[in-house]
Design a protein around this nucleic acid. Structure first.
Lengths: 197, 197
DNA sequence: GTTCCGTTGTTTACGGTGTAAACAGCATAC
DNA sequence: GTATGCTGTTTACACCGTAAACAACGGAAC
């Protein structure tokens, strides 16, 4: 709440810098070095390495949420949805290492206002287009955007190009309009596998 | 080609065992320990740790390709496509750590017959459904399946459930039928951003 | 058979990592 | 003044990936 203690913010910035410079997750010691401080100093502000990198990830979600919200300001609904998807993918292209961190298994567990906020921006937009299966459709959009971004960053597009990424996204957005009778059928006679986790 | 030298296979199996047991990437030394061999022994069979874990990932792709090919054997095309997607997601559910390894940035760079084979199984099926935008549609299916699996494994489904995962997948499959006039329009007046990478 | 050599595995060693523990400076409260 | 709590430091330890030198052994050449 109060003014950040200084070193805390410095460490996050140092970690971010090393992250995008090196491409991979920086070591705690290298972050401390970059910040011009002893190896143990970070422990005064973060419980452990995971806490530091998770804070970096949380910072990334703030940027991402704002980008999504800005992209969403479009007159036509489907146009806004597509723009959100492209903004997501462009964020990943512009900050590949940060993006990977944010969606990594060990450091991407942030549950902040920004994370929830970005979900809300998408969910609201989807609900205006596909009110019938809003939750599933929102999930589909998330999965598509995250999948496309991840695949492009990993360099495994295969025969596809960066243009095909946009086309693939539009395929989903365009498909969300249909009434989807089969989907409704599936949901009605839903199976016994309710609580797997 | 010839019978695997023994230790090589033993190491891969040990790594796989530790991987699924511990959830996270095992250390080279722990794999050697598990195989009952000295810490340096793996270097006689693998250039480094990445080579060992990449071999584990390649093994995973063999299993995955077979599962996809089996799921694809369905009378109706869209049914087969949906089954492939669910088989992909079920593979991730059954082998979460292996799945993450296979699609990780550092170890998932395999380019084997199995990787290409699994792509072919999908591409052929998609081409029979959406011949017009086959490459982009194949990419869309890959992204959706990978995105859904990743999101579910990360426990970030949000308000969605495991059932919604299936619904989301079906949303895409059902949407692939439409003629998509907008997509064609986009592709025709394509922009100047051809080679970004 | 003896010699030679390539393969496979071992021991030892080094620099890097995450982090626990003990300590030092320094501001503020009394 | 003294005491206390916060912030940073030094030291220490177990673990990691891997380079280098060495030992055992099995087959090929003679």
């Amino acid at each position: 709440m109060d003014a950040t203690p200084g070193l805390r913010k410095t460490l996050i910035e140092a970690a971010l810098k090393l992250l995008e410079a090196g491409g991979a997750e920086p070591s705690l010691r290298s972050v401390a070095r970059e910040a011009g401080v002893s190896a143990m100093a970070p422990y005064r502000h973060f419980a452990d390495k995971a806490a530091l990198l998770s804070s970096v990830a949380s910072y990334g979600f703030v940027i991402l949420r704002d980008a999504l919200a800005a992209a969403d300001r479009k007159p036509e609904a489907r146009q806004a949805l597509f723009a959100q998807g492209m903004a997501f993918i462009d964020f990943a292209r512009a900050n590949p290492a940060l993006f990977r961190l944010m969606y990594s298994h060990e450091y991407g567990r942030a549950d902040t206002d920004a994370v929830r906020g970005s979900y809300e921006v998408l969910a609201k937009r989807v609900a205006g287009i596909t009110p019938k299966h809003a939750v599933a459709a929102t999930l589909a959009c998330r999965a598509m955007a995250q999948g496309l971004a991840t695949i492009e960053l990993s360099g495994r597009l295969g025969p596809a190009t960066s243009e095909d990424v946009a086309v693939a996204l539009r395929l989903l957005v365009a498909g969300l309009s249909s009434s989807m009778p089969r989907v409704a059928a599936v949901k009605r006679r839903r199976r016994h596998s309710s609580a797997m986790r």
